[in-house]
Simulated assay, not measured.
Amino acid sequence: MKLIAAQILPVPGEYEKNIARHIEVIHQAASHGANLVLFPELSLTGYEPRLAKVLAVQPSNSRFDEFQRLSDRYGMLIAVGAPTRGAKGTEISMISFQPGLERTCYSKQHLHPDELPFFTPGTRKRVLSQADLVLAPAICYESLQPSHAEEAAASGAQVYLASVAKSARGTALANSHYPMIAKKHSMTVVMANCVGPAEDYVAAGGSSIWNSHGELVCSADAVNEALVAYDIQTGEASVFSIRYRA
Rank of each mutant, 00 (worst) to 15 (best):
H32D: 13
A157G: 04
F39S: 10
Y15T: 04
E16Y: 07
L161A: 04
K184V: 00
S93A: 15
Y15L: 14
Y15H: 12
F39H: 08
S107T: 13
N18V: 15
A182F: 10
A174R: 00
A149D: 06
R50P: 01
K184R: 15
D200S: 11
F67T: 11
M191W: 00
A153Y: 13
T188P: 05
K88M: 08
V57L: 11
L128H: 05
V239Y: 06
E215H: 14
S60P: 07
T104Y: 07
G81Y: 00
A136E: 05
A82G: 01
T120Y: 03
F119L: 02
Y178M: 06
T188M: 03
I4G: 10
I4L: 13
G206N: 12
L3I: 14
L55M: 02
S163A: 15
P117L: 09
K183E: 12
V202T: 07
Y201M: 09
S186V: 08
S31N: 08
L111Q: 02
K183G: 11
H213V: 11
A52T: 04
C218P: 00
S147G: 03
I78G: 05
A226C: 00
A52M: 03
R103V: 14
S93I: 11
A154R: 08
L101K: 12
R103S: 14
A34I: 00
G214P: 09
S238P: 01
Y15D: 08
H177N: 08
G33F: 09
S96N: 13
A168P: 07
E102H: 11
Y230S: 02
G81N: 00
N61W: 11
P179A: 10
I78V: 14
G122L: 06
P197L: 04
K53Y: 05
P49W: 02
V202A: 05
A157C: 07
V57E: 10
E225V: 06
S241P: 10
K88W: 06
A29I: 13
A174S: 15
E41C: 12
C140P: 03
E102D: 13
K108N: 08
G81T: 00
N211D: 15
V37M: 06
I181G: 04
L133Q: 04
V11H: 14
I78T: 09
N18Q: 09
I209T: 10
G100W: 04
F97D: 01
I181E: 03
S147F: 13
N211I: 10
E150D: 13
R85D: 05
Q28G: 11
Y141H: 15
A153C: 09
N224A: 12
F118G: 01
L77Q: 09
T123S: 12
F118M: 07
P12D: 07
P49L: 05
M94Y: 13
G205V: 13
F119A: 01
C105L: 08
H148W: 15
A87S: 07
P59W: 08
Y230T: 02
S241C: 07
V159C: 04
H177D: 03
D200E: 11
V189T: 15
P12S: 14
S241M: 11
V228N: 06
I23W: 00
G205E: 05
A198C: 12
D132H: 15
G46H: 04
Y74M: 03
E66Q: 04
A168H: 14
G81Q: 04
Q68N: 08
A136C: 15
E142T: 01
G46I: 04
R50Q: 06
A138D: 01
M180D: 11
H148I: 12
P99D: 05
P83T: 00
V189S: 10
C194W: 01
K53F: 12
R73H: 09
T90G: 02
